[in-house]
Nucleic acid binder design. Structure first.
Length: 477
DNA sequence: ATGTAC
């Protein structure tokens, strides 16, 4: 491919114009600093973004967030909207970890109280929350129970004593997609899910205990139940083997059906009107409900550990929000002055609806809902809130994390295990991992600097910071 | 990300 004609179109905004000679059906927009856009140009992810513009039925530009990097077909850190009526859904635009996302719990103790029991609490979390590749959970559900989880989402978890009724309003989509179709999930996927509910997984998935280190907007911070030096717990995980199997199953089915003309076979899709379109959406929503429930159960374990260690009431530990960053969703957006139904694919990108959107939980209709952005291991995380402007610019989306800069393989080759461990120790972060290699693979040096990502997002006017969170301890697969 | 390979 000849060099892509990137041009600056605004502060922290770059564009690639539609070029029919390249087969593009729309342009592309990249929200990033000069430095981050150069990183994206060199790793091949912008080329992936341009491939997405070649798909039929795309509406508006293909969008890249500053944390963009290479993914399966679609880049991670990308947003692409398609017409609902004559558009498509693509499993690669959702990702293998369906409804991967982040939950944040506010715990009403201060840093100094936590410090006295830090090691004991982190060790207890590591002991109670199964972590690592292929790990089984303690629940071991029947097929019938798993079907309820996939249909009812966190409502099932709460009814079974592992959550608080108030959590529903603080979970994206109220913790349940209504068109989940259990019958569209294969027996192989179901079998993996039965053993894995309530498990963390591996790679970049984690539970982190943090303190609120800086408050940028005290009014919204207090509405979100966050104040300086108060303790938070952040969970990053998704739909585990179940979602992975759903993605594998449908990508395979779509490739076998083989009717699409594709710029890259990893972009394989189903058009609205085809059987696999409805089947995939039903299965994706079932996996999404599993992922919401998985995070809710891990939050329950965290609440139990803290209730015991600090003599707290379960209900005093409030979920700030539980957000999704790997989904395709049917939403209404204004397109050229007309309300239009779209399927918005966000892969490694979060929804960040500003105040006023009906989808937001009741509190968040006033404030906009929280955008949870974890930094790399050992660096700060951020809570942001969507700005009105992002409805026009990004279909109401924001970034999802720091974004990798070097591959897992390269991290193992170039980073030194003991040096990374020492650096985390010096920063005052207590780390427990199920495997050793994850320390290098997920080292801060494998990722972009979160501050650069946040500066880009704020500079482009998509979202603004509410608080930063600094890590005190972390458990990982 | 993932019972890290069909």
């Amino acid at each position: 491919m000849s060099e892509l004609p990137l041009r600056k179109v605004g502060d922290f905004i770059f564009g690639i114009d539609r070029d029919v000679n390249r087969g593009m059906n729309s342009g592309a927009l990249i929200f990033a600093s000069e430095d981050l856009v150069q990183k994206a140009m060199s790793d091949g992810s912008i080329e992936q973004l341009v491939n997405v513009t070649k798909l039929p039925g795309i509406v508006g530009p293909a969008i890249a967030m500053p944390d963009i990097h290479l993914g399966y077909g679609f880049p991670i850190g990308g947003v692409a909207a398609f017409s609902y009526d004559d558009g498509l859904v693509s499993p690669g635009g959702v990702g293998y970890d369906i409804n991967c996302g982040v939950s944040l719990l506010s715990i009403p103790i201060t840093q100094s109280t936590f410090a006295s029991k830090r090691k004991e609490v982190i060790d207890a979390l590591f002991q109670r929350i199964p972590s690592g590749v292929g790990t089984k959970g303690k629940l071991d559900l029947s097929r019938q129970q798993l079907a309820s989880v996939m249909t009812e989402g966190i409502n099932w978890v709460i009814e079974n004593g592992m959550g608080d009724a108030m959590d529903v309003d603080h979970t994206d989509e109220l913790g349940k997609f209504g068109e989940a179709e259990v019958s569209k999930v294969s027996p192989a996927a179901t079998g993996r899910g039965m053993k894995q509910l309530g498990t963390l997984g591996a790679g970049n998935h984690f539970v982190e205990i943090q303190r609120v280190s800086r408050v940028f907007d005290s009014k919204i911070a207090s509405a979100f139940n966050l104040s300086e030096n108060n303790i938070t717990a952040m969970v990053h995980t998704g739909s585990r083997g179940l979602g992975h199997q759903v993605a594998t199953d449908y990508i395979e089915k779509l490739l076998r059906s083989g009717s699409n003309q594709l710029p890259d076979r990893q972009l394989v899709f189903a058009r609205n009107g085809e059987r696999l379109f409805d089947d995939y959406i039903g299965a994706m929503q079932a996996a999404a409900n599993f992922a919401f429930s998985n995070r809710e159960i891990i939050i329950d374990q965290i609440r139990r550990v803290f209730a015991k260690a600090f003599n707290l009431e379960y209900e005093d530990m409030r979920i700030v929000y539980s957000i999704s960053h790997n989904l395709a969703r049917v939403e209404e957006h204004e397109v050229e002055g007309k309300k239009t139904r779209l399927i918005v694919h966000r892969k490694g990108a979060t929804r960040a609806f500003p105040p006023g959107r009906k989808e937001n939980g009741s509190l968040f209709k006033l404030t906009g809902h929280p955008v949870l952005v974890p930094g790399s291991m050992g660096s700060d995380s951020y809570v942001l809130v969507g700005e009105k402007k992002n409805m026009e610019l990004t279909f109401g989306s924001s970034c999802h994390g720091a974004g990798r800069v070097i591959s897992r393989h390269k991290a193992m080759e170039t980073l030194n295990l003991s040096r990374v461990s020492e650096e985390l120790n010096e920063k005052g972060v207590y780390l427990k991992t199920a495997s050793r290699k994850v320390i290098q693979e997920e080292a801060p040096g494998s990722y972009k600097q979160i501050e650069q990502v946040i500066r880009s997002i704020e500079g482009a006017g998509i979202s603004r910071s509410v608080v930063s969170l600094s890590p005190l301890g972390v458990i990982k697969g």
